[in-house]
Design a protein around this nucleic acid. Structure first.
Lengths: 145, 145
DNA sequence: CTAAACTGATACTATATTAGTATCAATTAA
DNA sequence: TTAATTGATACTAATATAGTATCAGTTTAG
């Protein structure tokens, strides 16, 4: 069971790269090269993120992509929803064979509770938080050298 | 993002059916019919569960499958692991491009923490618990009629 | 004013996973 | 002995994920 697909994984990495250089445009090519993400694949992800107003772009030479939203307001839950669809535990347990009355189906409640937990855990993880964690980790690495 | 695949979903339903008739053998056919699960598909799932010692079988006429383990000791986490592989959030964030030092990679910690949360939430949900919830729900439905 | 470095849009292929079907041999109870 | 069953396994279909290719339009540097 894989929770994050490459889509989401690459998108997170790209956002981290853009957040680290906030205010300036980074080309898809440079992000792809530096972070080892397939170029054309990444371009599609970036365009998707534009559609969701997470980033903006500038065409032409010296163009590229730039953060639009505050990294602290972008959660992993959002990214999962964009690239993997809404978190849902199961569509199939709600059949009448299992629980006669949908509205009262306790299984459903159980499942929806877990859905909530999963979602809210991923909501705690924002791009901003990841970026800060990353910087801290890098500092530790620097000192070691 | 779908957390439970049909595999797991069907397996849970089959286990609930078997738990409800604990001590007697239920044929794959009867379970398939009653719970609207594709017959051959179900058979494979049942065999997989035998291999994991969750259930036992008896061949021949009047044969079928029967619970082996205590339903309270079968967790949804276990079933996910059997049918969907171990819960893992992402294999890809651990590259050196993102976090120079694997051991200290904070992203990794973040991800592993979530992995733990997801797993332990599903561990709280046992077949036994689901069965009791289900019985309660059915009683409520009965009264309404 | 033109060439090169870019994004926008979109179509395409490849691979993996999930879902479902089919078949035949072996076993067992009536 | 035969019909109802599981054991084992091979196969197909559908869907999701991953990755590639192409061409048109925009912009800036020279």
């Amino acid at each position: 069971m894989k929770v994050l697909t490459k889509n989401t994984d690459y998108a997170i990495r790209a956002l981290l790269a853009l957040s680290a250089k906030k205010g300036s445009y980074l080309s898809a090519k440079s992000i792809a090269t530096e972070h080892d993400i397939p170029y054309q694949f990444l371009r599609r992800l970036l365009q998707e993120m534009i559609r969701h107003d997470l980033i903006v772009s500038k065409e032409g030479v010296q163009g590229g992509f730039m953060m639009e939203k505050d990294p602290d307001e972008i959660t992993v839950t959002q990214l999962i929803e964009i690239f993997q669809g809404k978190v849902q535990v199961s569509e199939c347990m709600f059949r009448k064979q299992i629980c006669g009355n949908r509205a009262r189906c306790v299984l459903r409640h159980e499942i929806m509770r877990i859905e909530q937990v999963v979602q809210s855990e991923f909501e705690k993880v924002t791009i901003g938080k990841l970026l800060r964690d990353l910087e801290t980790a890098n500092q530790v690495n620097q000192k070691e050298k």
